[in-house]
Amino acid sequence: MLSIFLYVTVVSLLILSITSVIYKRNLIKLVIALNIAESSVNLFFITLAYRPDSTAPIFTLAPALQELRMVLPSPQALILTNIVIGFATTALMLVLAVITYKNNGTLDIRKLKGVEDHD
């Protein structure tokens, strides 16, 4: 029963991060918010992979049990991919924030509109 709190954590993290994407105004804080969102998705996948009383899916020196139970391998492989992609996104966003700061002298998105007059 307690394990549903893992899902509650996942949803709470996602909601919190999207809320901070909506209300935070610093470019760096937006990057952090998106990192939290990505972590929540990673946590979601790894929660799906969990099985009680199971070992990691590695046969090297695994305990020799009568009935060997293992957690699911493919979500782990996928979040490995997702972590690398998240790292790439974070690095690129930080670099863009650095150059934006060099060009405009601010990180506040209310000041950096990036739009001139429409007509």
């Binding site: 999207i18 994407v21 909506i22 209300y23 935070k24 105004r25 937006l30 998105i109 209310r110 950096l112 509109k113 990036g114 739009v115 429409h118």
Partner: peptide, 11 residues
Amino acid sequence: FHDGDLNNYAK
């Protein structure tokens, strides 16, 4: 609506 404010876009 099109003022360039990133928060509005995500909203």
